[in-house]
Write a protein that binds this DNA or RNA. Structure first.
Length: 192
DNA sequence: GTACAGATTGAG
DNA sequence: TCAATCTGTACT
């Protein structure tokens, strides 16, 4: 059985991918030789050129957001506030700027508090610019696997997205953030 | 060339 | 509540 998630998994609308990523395992073989892995427990979807919170709002294409426009399954990573990386995965098809932001991961050998935020998980898993544009369906450095764990609707909470109030109430309130219910109290507080 | 604000975090 | 810290992007 092939456990690694393939092209079919990623070439769907970002809200579907974000939801289905919960419970999957992400693996990173770091440059210094260690293997880090963990279970994805929180994600956010960015839904395309009409999404005011998206870096590709209005169809904007820049060197920085190039990876958002690629076929689903590529890494889109960028720095915010001068000190934190944000690990995203492009979704859907080539030419459509959708992506999913990883916001929370439960480390295999560690404390959830080490990776319960988009900046914190990048620090813990050693994700940085060197992964920009990497294809998760091909890479031997970073990829995502199916664990067999299947989260039901009742195991998932959907809320508004975090930190994008500048996009206005409509986009901030749309239910595009997904978290595993088991960890709701260990993740950033959410608005109903 | 210069200014500016951000998909965050942790300390006070 | 607020500073840290820096880069992409917009504007002069």
């Amino acid at each position: 059985m092939q456990k690694r998630l393939g092209i079919d998994f990623y070439t769907k609308p970002s809200a579907d991918v974000a939801r289905e990523l919960l419970g999957k395992r992400i693996i990173h073989n770091t440059p210094d030789g260690s293997a880090l892995s963990g279970k994805i427990i929180e994600t956010e979807a960015y839904t395309g050129p009409h999404d005011k919170a998206s870096h590709a709002y209005g169809g904007k294409r820049t060197p920085r957001n190039r990876a958002v426009w690629t076929r689903g399954g590529h890494v889109y990573i960028y720095m915010v506030y001068g000190m934190y990386w944000q690990f995203n995965i492009s979704t859907y098809i080539e030419g459509v700027p959708e992506c999913v932001l990883l916001r929370g991961v439960l480390p295999e050998n560690g404390d959830v508090a080490k990776a319960n935020g988009p900046g914190k998980l990048c620090r813990y898993f050693k994700f940085d610019k060197s992964l920009y544009g990497v294809d998760l369906t091909q890479s031997d450095t970073v990829w995502i696997e199916d664990t067999g764990e299947m989260l039901d609707d009742k195991d998932i909470i959907a809320t508004g997205r975090i930190g994008i109030d500048y996009a206005g109430k409509y986009w901030a309130r749309r239910k595009l953030r997904f978290l595993a219910k088991d960890f709701e109290n260990k993740l950033v507080k959410y608005r109903a």
